[in-house]
């Protein structure tokens, strides 16, 4: 019975081919450093899931942001767990993505034909850092407020267009409700959308080219 259902679906969807291409592709001899890309992907999914749940209570307004997070931590069942995972997962993701990049660098995997995988990867690193930067403001406590004051000030030190960048990031000359709202929009809609698209491109290229071999003594 299930065999029949599976065959019916497989003929139309090509499930078997998909499985072979995605999960049963040939790999060079395993190496733990090669798992960091998948670890990054897992952390991205974990951050997405916990982040979606956090938006159920979190309120991006100067009047409510801090209190809503306080409520998540003390008033909601498992709030400490969901926020804890998102909070620590954010730092972990940046570390893991960064070490993944170092591994690709040291194994020289960025060379032909994987240059584009590397370029897309740079986009992924930048977007991941952007997620960290925008997420950091959301609790709207002193640390968040001043970290963002400093961060946007640094972006504002760019010659000529610095002032424009600073105002565009803050939504005005000062940190305000507009800053919190646009950081929130970036954090939950814009950056994740870009991140998702880049991950898709990254994974496509990885499947297309296969993993590079770990360099041996002769390389």
């Amino acid at each position: 019975m299930w065999q029949k259902v599976y065959t019916w679906l497989d003929e139309r969807l090509g499930l078997g081919d998909m499985y072979t291409a995605l999960l049963d592709r040939p790999e060079p001899r395993g190496n733990w450093w090669n798992t960091l890309g998948s670890a990054s992907l897992f952390l991205f999914l974990l951050q997405t899931a916990t982040g979606i749940f956090l938006t159920v209570y979190y309120t991006p307004s100067p009047d409510h942001a801090y209190d809503s997070i306080q409520y998540i931590m003390t008033g909601v069942a498992f709030g400490w767990l969901i926020r804890g995972i998102h909070h620590w997962g954010a730092s972990l993701m940046i570390i893991v993505v960064f070490i993944h990049m170092l591994r690709v660098f040291f194994t020289a995997s960025y060379k032909y034909p994987r240059e584009l995988t590397w370029l897309v990867g740079i986009g992924l690193l930048l977007m991941t850092i952007g997620m960290g930067f925008t997420g950091y403001l959301l609790p709207w406590h002193q640390m968040a407020f001043w970290a963002t004051t400093v961060g946007t000030q640094i972006a504002g030190s760019v010659p000529f267009i610095g002032d424009f960048i600073l105002k565009a990031l803050r939504g005005g000359p000062d940190l305000s409700a507009l800053t919190l709202q646009r950081f929130f929009a970036a954090h939950i809609w814009m950056l994740p959308a870009v991140l998702l698209a880049l991950i898709g491109a990254h994974l496509y290229l990885i499947i297309k080219h296969g993993e590079s071999h770990f360099p041996g003594k002769d390389d």
């Binding site: 974990l46 916990t50 749940f53 909601v76 069942a77 498992f78 767990l81 969901i82």
Partner: peptide
């Protein structure tokens, strides 16, 4: 994570 997440969601109803 899934079970705590459900608890997290429906908490106000309880």
């Amino acid at each position: 994570i899934g079970l705590p997440a459900v608890g997290f969601l429906v908490d106000p109803a309880l």
